[in-house]
Computed example of a mutant assay.
Amino acid sequence: MRTIDKRVAPPAKLAASLVARAPTLTLAYGARCKSRFAAALDTGEEVGLVMPRGTILADGDVLVADDGALVRVIAAAESVLVVRARNALTLTRAAYHLGNRHTPVEIGIDYLKLEADSVLEEMLMRLGAQVERATLPFHPEAGAYGGGHRHGHDETFAEDYALAQQVFEQRHGHAHDDGHGHEHEHEHHHAHDHGHGHDHAHEHGHGHDRSHEGCDSCGHDHPHRH
C-alpha cells in the first residue's frame, strides 16, 4: 500500500496537465482534519495518509505519495446547513452564536455554512435566520476552533445559548439606560445630605469601624454600602 506523506505548496506551481492527470482522493471535512488514516483513492486503490499533525487538507490540495506520484484532494459533498438572513445584523448574530459554540463555519459574502445539526438549525431559525439543508462541499474557516467543536446536542448547549442571549439583552438594554441611569443613582446617594449636613451612604469600602460614628444621636438608620 502506498503512503501519502507530503503536500505540495502551492499547487499552482505544478503544470496543470500533471494535476489534471493525478488520481483524486475525495474526503469529507472530518477526514480532511485527520493526520493519519487509511483511505481509498477514487480509482479504488487503498492508500495510507501520514501527514504532519495539525494538517487540514483543502479542496484542490495536491499530495505526493512515497513513490513520487501526485494525488489531488477533492472536498466531498456532505450534509450541511446553509444560513442566510434578511439583514446583516441577523447573519452576524447567527455567526456570533455559532462561534460561541466553537462550531466550524464556512463564511461567504451573504451566507454561513455548517455541518448539519438539528439543534443548531432550530437555534438559527429562532434567531430569525433562513436555514436550508443541502448536500455540498464544506470549506470552513481554518485555525479558529481551539480544542475542537461542539454540536447543538451537547448537554451544555442550552446553558451556552441562554447565557449568550442574556449577554445580548443586557448590552442592548444598557444602550437605552445610558444618560439617565447614573443620574438617578447620584440623586439617591445624596438624599440625606440636606437634613444632617453629612452623607450617611458609605460607598467607598472604608470598613465598619468608621461607618457608625455619631449615628446614635440621629434617631434613624443609615444605609452602609461597601
Rank of each mutant, 00 (worst) to 15 (best):
M1K: 06
M1R: 03
D5C: 03
K6I: 05
K6L: 07
K6H: 12
R7Y: 05
V8T: 06
A9C: 12
A9K: 14
P11A: 01
A12I: 07
K13G: 15
A16H: 07
A20V: 04
A22Q: 03
A22L: 10
P23F: 05
L27Q: 06
G30T: 08
G30H: 03
A31V: 05
R32K: 02
C33W: 01
R36Q: 09
A39R: 01
L41T: 04
D42L: 00
E45G: 00
G48A: 12
M51S: 03
P52L: 06
G54Q: 12
T55A: 04
T55R: 01
I56A: 12
A58L: 09
D61H: 07
L63N: 05
V64E: 01
V64P: 08
D67H: 01
D67E: 00
D67R: 09
G68A: 01
V71K: 04
V71I: 08
A75V: 12
A76I: 02
E78Q: 15
S79C: 02
S79T: 09
V83I: 13
A88W: 11
A88M: 07
L89R: 15
L89H: 06
A94D: 05
A95P: 01
N100C: 08
R101H: 07
T103N: 04
T103W: 02
E106V: 08
I107R: 13
I107W: 11
I109Q: 13
D110H: 10
D110Y: 02
Y111D: 01
L114F: 05
E115D: 11
E115M: 15
V119W: 02
V119G: 03
E122L: 14
L124T: 00
L124Q: 00
M125A: 09
A129E: 03
A129Q: 02
A129Y: 11
V131I: 02
A134C: 06
A134V: 00
P137A: 03
F138K: 09
H139N: 15
G146S: 07
G152I: 00
D154M: 03
A158H: 11
E159N: 05
D160K: 04
A162N: 00
A164Y: 09
A164M: 13
V167A: 14
V167R: 07
V167I: 14
Q170K: 08
H172I: 11
G173H: 06
G179Y: 12
H180E: 06
H180I: 09
H180N: 14
G181V: 11
G181M: 11
H182M: 15
H182E: 12
E185A: 15
E185V: 15
E187Y: 09
H190E: 15
H190W: 13
A191K: 10
A191P: 03
H192I: 09
D193P: 03
G195V: 11
G197L: 11
H198L: 14
H200K: 12
E203Q: 12
G205W: 13
H206I: 09
G207E: 06
H212S: 09
D216P: 13
H222L: 03
H224Y: 05
H226K: 15
